[in-house]
Every structure is written in C-alpha cells, then in structure tokens.
Amino acid sequence: MAISLGKLTLGRIVQAAIVALVVGVVGFAMMEALPGDAAYRIAAGRYGYDMVTGAAAEQVRSELGLDRPAAERLLTWVGQTFTFDLGQSAVTGERVGHAIDHQLGHTVELALVAVAVALLIAVPIGVLAGLRPGSLFDRISAALAIVVRAMPAFLIGIVLMLVLAVELGLVPAAGHGHGGNFVLPALTLGIVLASVLTRVVRNAVAATVASDAFQFALHKGLPMRAAFLRHGVRNAAVPVVAYLGVQMALLLEGVVVVESVFSWPGIGHALTHAIFERDVPMLQGTALTLGLMFVLLSFLADLACRALDPRLNT
C-alpha cells in the first residue's frame, strides 16, 4: 500500500509535466475563447485607453503575429517552453521569466509570512478547542471560523487597513519595500487561511485525543499535558500538514485579491492583469509557475507527512 520515496518522486515529476501541459493548453484555449479582440486589449494595456485606436491595435497585431492560426501560436509557445524560454510580455515587452522571478519572490515571501500568521492563530485555538470538543470555546471558535471564511478577503483587508493603519496608525496601509508593508497583507491572508485551518487542527486534535493509543497514555497515568506533547502532537500534525499543502490553492486565491488591495507586486496581481490585458505569454508563464508550485508544495507536504509518520514509509 505504501509507495517508496523514489516512486513518489517519479510520480510527482510525471504529474508536474502533465500539469504544465494541461495548464499551457487550457490556459491558451481559455484566452482564445474569451470574447473581444486581443490586439485591442493588448494595445489598451500598452498605451492606455486614451491612445487605443484601430491603428495602434493593427500595429500590435502585426508585431505579435496575432493573425497567425491559434494552433501555430500554441505550438510556438510549447516549443519555446521546452527550451525554458517563456517569451516576452505582450504588454510590457519584459522577459516573462525575468518578471516572474521578481513577482514569485514577492508572493512566496508574503505566503510564508501568511502561513506563519495562520499557524500562530490556528494552532493554539484549534488545540484548545480540540482538547474539549463541544465546549463553549469550541463552538465560538467554530462560529468565528465560519464568519471569517464567509467574508471576502478584500473586505478583511480593508477593515484591517482601517483599524491598524488609519485609526491606530501602527503600520503602512499599502505598498511594498519596508518591513512594515508585510503586516497587513500577511495578516489578511493569515486570517483567511487560519479560519479553516483552526477547524482542521481542532478535528485532528479531537481525533487524536479520542484514539485508543492516546486514551491508553492517559490510563497509564501521564498527565494531559505530557500525554498530548508525547503522543498527541505528532499524530495530530499529519492531517494539518497535509491540509496546509492543499491550502496553498486557497492562499493563491487570496493572493490575487490581497495583492491588488495592498498594491503588492506579486504573481497574483500579475496574473489578473495578464488576463485583463490578454497578455498570453505572461498568463501562460504565471499560470505555469503557479501550477508547478502547487505540485512542488504537495510533494513537500508528502515528504513532511512521511517524516512525521514513519508508517507511511513502510
């Protein structure tokens, strides 16, 4: 039943290749299917809408070869991608690889801080709730988690901005470049992430505490605290880590909105603008990077789970 590490790695590499192909082809097909003339969209992105005219659009069309058949353009992209060349942005002319290099760095920084914030919030609350399932604390934390998860990320962002930046003047409202700029976007993303993570921690802890092994530890006379640290944490951590790996999708969804609200120069912001502006090379590049990141993160989560639970390796 268990898979060897080698097989797992190989499987993930195959998966990465499939993801790359699917993202590339589906992304391209979706951009083709969107209504409207891409040459005009790109011209609007490049020159601002006061300057978009039929003439500017035609110049864009001939420069980028947009009148070539779709299949030919897709094959060109696939060919380039095999040589690790993501091409040039249709709007800014910047090398896509170079642009993503910057943006991904900013997004990963933000995501890591957000995960840390989420863990800081979710672990204490989840553990306390999970140790006493059904208690008042458990029910209140459940209600809060639902309320927060139901709120759009940009609303949480604006509320935090109002309270922490405008009313209290503690942190900068938006922007990038200072350490303080991390606080609000990371807190926003962390809170969104924590809403569901709290429940996952709580369930994992509750299941662990109810397990025979844990009950035996209590029966043999260990105090609750010692029993939980010795026999509970590691068991409960496995589903939490597995879940965090999957949660990256939610994080990326949040990143798209939160980066725009806080003017954070990350990959989510780049992705949305690439869609608006029909910047196909940029969209393909960002979507591909995000897809591969997703594969990498689930692989890392697998490895972490195996480290936590040796039974998975046998």
């Binding site: 901005m161 930046a165 405008v166 003047g169 900068p172 409202a173 938006a174 922007g175 806080f262 003017s263």
Partner: peptide, 19 residues
Amino acid sequence: YLSASRAETRALMAESGDA
C-alpha cells in the same frame, strides 16, 4: 509613485499618511 489600483486603498493611504 505607487500604483494603487483600488480607490479605497488610495483614500485609506492618504488618511493614514502612507500617501
């Protein structure tokens, strides 16, 4: 110069002194 695409963000930045 910071491009803040949301009008809410710009207003809050002005109010908090960031812009």
